[in-house]
Simulated assay, not measured.
Amino acid sequence: MISLDFRTKKNGVPILSRREIEDIAEQVIHSYKPKLVNSPGVLDVELFIENYAELEMDYQDLTHDGSILGMTVFNDCRIPVYDAENEKAVRMTVNEGTVLIDNSLLESDQLRRGRFTLAHEAAHWLLHRQMYLENKNQISLFEALEMEEKKLPVIKCRTSDIESKGKKELVTDDEWMEWQADYMASVLLMPRKAFSSLVKEKFKSAKIDKNFYRLGTDFETDLWAEAMAYEMADFFEVSVTAAKIRLKNLGFIKDQQDRQQYSLI
């Protein structure tokens, strides 16, 4: 696994723009499977997590209501999970470098969201583990195992953190880190160059001269844009939500009220 270099705040939280995340994710993909950078294809995210990021995966009922989809564990500790059989919370010992995914994402209609969640957790490990390494040697194993939940060396990702759509006001460090992991997950699964080449082919086939389409311009083309999002989702094995967000983030599809281009192409 390559060593990543980027700016951070004094507390270790990365300072990253979209462009910088695009570049970092591209470096990662190039070091893992170079072909995926330029040629459209599907990232086997489980193999990526195990063989490249060297993380363990475990599926659990993380909460009683499915509100937490994934966790990344940075130091050995005991994590509260839900014991569905006895309908109560219990603590389980988890090793450093473990990604926990909620069992709900194993349902057949949630597999693509599960892929995105795995990529999101891998992004946390790649971008944010340095924050926890600094405190690792200052805490005894016993203290780590019995640590209060709010101090656990864990990032918990809720349903609102994964495939986040809509514009959020990012204020806290946690909000910034969730945005960073979510954006990097989208790039890992849909690398810019590979994704863009496929979209441009579709634009050419639809005889759209510009490198973007503004929703609301034409009813039939709006339907085409909707169908294209489904096609992109199927090709990269992501959710339609994730594909739509990627199309907008790269400036290919614009909302009617969005008058400012911010394409990364």
Results as ranks from 00 to 15, higher is better:
residue 124 H to G: 06
residue 140 S to K: 07
residue 143 E to N: 14
residue 186 S to E: 07
residue 186 S to T: 04
residue 124 H to A: 06
residue 174 D to I: 00
residue 126 L to T: 05
residue 157 C to P: 00
residue 146 E to S: 14
residue 134 E to H: 12
residue 190 M to I: 03
residue 217 T to G: 10
residue 188 L to K: 02
residue 168 K to F: 14
residue 195 F to R: 03
residue 143 E to R: 10
residue 136 K to E: 15
residue 146 E to C: 11
residue 175 E to I: 01
residue 157 C to N: 15
residue 131 M to C: 08
residue 204 K to D: 13
residue 188 L to I: 04
residue 158 R to S: 09
residue 194 A to W: 05
residue 181 A to M: 12
residue 154 V to M: 03
residue 196 S to Y: 00
residue 131 M to A: 11
residue 130 Q to W: 11
residue 140 S to R: 07
residue 156 K to T: 07
residue 181 A to S: 14
residue 200 K to L: 13
residue 193 K to Y: 06
residue 127 L to S: 07
residue 138 Q to C: 11
residue 149 E to I: 05
residue 204 K to E: 12
residue 152 L to C: 10
residue 215 L to C: 00
residue 194 A to R: 03
residue 193 K to V: 01
residue 168 K to Y: 13
residue 182 D to T: 04
residue 200 K to R: 14
residue 131 M to E: 12
residue 167 K to H: 09
residue 171 V to P: 00
residue 184 M to H: 12
residue 171 V to S: 04
residue 207 K to W: 10
residue 159 T to V: 11
residue 143 E to S: 14
residue 151 K to G: 07
residue 136 K to L: 14
residue 215 L to N: 00
residue 199 V to T: 07
residue 166 G to W: 09
residue 150 K to V: 07
residue 128 H to L: 06
residue 141 L to I: 11
residue 163 E to H: 08
residue 135 N to L: 07
residue 173 D to T: 02
residue 133 L to V: 06
residue 180 Q to K: 05
residue 188 L to F: 10
residue 188 L to H: 06
residue 206 A to S: 14
residue 156 K to R: 13
residue 197 S to V: 02
residue 123 A to N: 09
